[in-house]
Design a protein around this nucleic acid. Structure first.
Lengths: 222, 222
DNA sequence: TTTCGGATTATGGATTTCCGTAAAATACTG
DNA sequence: CAGTATTTTACGGAAATCCATAATCCGAAA
């Protein structure tokens, strides 16, 4: 089982529950941070002191408040920590149930477990701890397990997302083209734009642009 | 202080924290429900048994799962409970920070307190308990207190919201008109529709329809 | 009843978006 | 290099939306 654990979580309710869970496993050496920045600093410090953490349990979304932060989301924190300390085990602990985001966590950041906050999350957290401490097996909450099986035929690239964001921001197609031209984004013709939009609408089964933006907003893509 | 409390909350982490808080106030007679339906039944039962609850602490959003439910959200639960037992005190306990929704809770459902889940929510929950148990004063978490001061010049009516919902659902303006005509919603001409949309865009400072839907989605109106 | 003000509806033209086709540019292959 | 495939760009007509103006309806007040 793990010896030294750090928790990145802004809500005290979840902090409390995680601490309780860790205690049940007789893990006493743990710390928590309410901001991603703090968590990252602690992890770096621990490495320097030659007493690294062997587990990070991190939330994904953190509330913004008065404080200025460098790392604003758990996704970023996880990414940075994975680079800094490749062998640390990571559990993402979140209410996020968007397939695309979960998939990317496993594939890009190589998290070891994803526990979905919900009616039985403490039980699942315990399962995750058991599994990933004993082996290199992954754990994912059953409610969202389908996220990984989903065929990753996401041909949606950065430009697509950029377009969607501009659209949802009230920019007209013509204006977006102008912006792309003046910032030398590769395809910047009216027709390329329209073709992309057409593909996107096809992909997301959207009837029109309004619908498309509505759908992608719901899916957490923009 | 309160004698008999019921909590409607699906996440066990929050349940745990609330129970802990109540214990700190020496409140021992409390129950919790993970589904709105259950909470409502318990409240009704308690009235019939002549031992009604004097406080409801309710979350607003509940995860959907396999189970079929009649009451799907805390907003509905609160509304129904307020009708059933007008003198019960109600605390909404949620991460919801959309002004429109909070305002409506105070004005339409006459909740007694709104506690925003966050980095210091337990402390705020305690404050809320103190204030509303001793008087008829309202409590609202400072981070969202501005929601109440907002000028309520919401001339946005049901039809507007219906239109926005249809739009975000991919329905074209013409199609919406057809729907309105066949279900005899009052204004159902092309121009009335366009005028309404124009007003909405004006009100929300939206550049176009896509922008409008995007904004109202973000505000939690649709 | 008449008049007024508002709300709804009608109309038409400007603008934007939609969608298919085709030309041009670029990449890839043998 | 020639030939093919893929991507990007160009163009044009159809459809939808945007916007201003004018006509109509309808209830309230004089």
């Amino acid at each position: 089982m793990f010896k030294k654990v750090i928790i990145a979580e802004d809500f005290e309710e979840f902090n409390l529950a995680v601490k309780q869970t860790l205690s049940d496993f007789d893990i006493v050496n743990f710390q928590h941070a309410k901001y991603c920045d703090d968590a990252f600093l602690k992890i770096r410090k621990a490495i320097q002191d030659n007493e690294p953490y062997d587990l990070l349990i991190s939330d994904l979304s953190f509330k913004k408040d008065h404080r200025e932060v460098k790392i604003g989301s758990g996704d970023e924190l996880i990414q940075k920590v994975r680079e800094l300390q490749p062998d640390i085990k990571i559990i993402a602990y979140s209410i996020e149930d968007k397939n695309a985001r979960i998939k990317s966590l496993f594939e890009d950041s190589e998290i070891n477990a994803f526990v979905l906050k919900g009616r039985n999350s403490i039980e699942e957290l315990k399962k995750a701890l058991n599994i990933i401490s004993a082996s290199d097996q992954k754990f994912i909450s059953p409610e969202v397990a389908s996220a990984l099986q989903e065929k990753g035929n996401y041909e949606i690239d950065d430009v697509d997302i950029k377009i969607l964001k501009y659209l949802s921001d009230g920019t007209s197609q013509d204006e977006i083209i102008e912006i792309f031209k003046s910032s030398d984004v590769k395809p910047n013709s009216k027709s390329a734009m329209e073709k992309r939009l057409s593909k996107l609408k096809d992909f997301f089964k959207a009837n029109n642009t309004v619908h498309l933006v509505s759908i992608t907003k719901d899916m957490g893509i923009i």
